[in-house]
Design a protein around this nucleic acid. Structure first.
Lengths: 150, 150
DNA sequence: ATATTATCATTGCATATGCAAACATATAAC
DNA sequence: GTTATATGTTTGCATATGCAATGATAATAT
């Protein structure tokens, strides 16, 4: 490349992800907390539990999905359990495990909050996005960050 | 919609952004800190300064770009100034302003670290991405999160 | 000109979170 | 079977960060 500045499309895209995340996290956290009394990360925690096989997840598995330290999960679950959104369940085979499960009212609250998240997500793409745009964009994201549960 | 589950492509995409951000932030923070002794957010702070008109930015403008509270900028700049990466500059007209500028060695370090970020960004898209894919993806991100300086 | 209001930077306080250590339990090696 | 190693969860500690209040300065209104 003889002439000066290289066009760093890759780093532009990565910085774009960082920026998009900051903006969306800001917006969603505020609304979810105001309307449903749940932080965005609490919603995600409960959503991963709901979607897990058997609707239960150990603390470490939850930590992997949330990309946080297991100790953070321990701490996040305390208030959620106290207000009756989630419960703790032991494993019959392995006494180390402490599963997180959803209580009935937790599931109810999660579904309401997730409906809000859906509406807000639709708003993000409201202008100038076709359904194919959105699905294509999502599939590009899946390439970058595939679900790697384990 | 008569049949059961709606396909929430919007929320899938939003959750995908959250996940991609978590993975990339994790990966980049580790490498940048190990190789250049700069946290990802410190690099971004310095990058925004470098790219600003006049290569200087007030604390509040920096806070807007970084999507953090101004107090966080105050605190982030302290160690960076102490190790000689940035400097503080007053404004001739407005005594309230405290600009952040790059020192020569700060600029040097920034350029090295940014080169690493470029390489790592290219790695993110290494497989199965054409240049057009990347640029298209970036332009979709720009729609979601346009640069809104001020 | 003075008073009110707005803006910029900083500080105190509360909360959030990663890391390493500790402890309990399970798995593997022998 | 006992010992060594690995895994799941929790806690102490250090750091990071948002929010609200403070102080300084500027801009606006009257």
């Amino acid at each position: 490349m003889l002439n000066g500045m290289m066009t760093d499309s890759s780093s532009n895209a990565v910085l774009g992800i960082f920026r998009a995340n900051a903006i969306l996290e800001e917006r969603f956290t505020g609304a979810l907390s105001a309307v449903h009394g749940l932080a965005l990360k609490e919603l995600l925690l409960m959503l991963y539990v709901q979607r897990a096989p058997g609707s239960k997840l150990s603390r470490v598995d939850l930590a992997k999905r949330l990309h946080v330290n297991p100790s953070t999960v321990t701490r996040m679950t305390l208030p959620l359990e106290k207000i009756g959104m989630i419960a703790r369940e032991a494993d019959a085979r392995d006494a180390r495990l402490a599963y997180v499960t959803l209580t009935p009212s937790g599931e109810e609250r999660l579904n309401e909050a997730f409906a809000t998240l859906n509406r807000m997500s639709a708003d993000v793409f409201q202008d100038r996005w076709s359904e194919e745009d959105i699905e294509g964009f999502d599939s590009l994201l899946q390439r970058i960050a595939p679900h790697s549960y384990s």
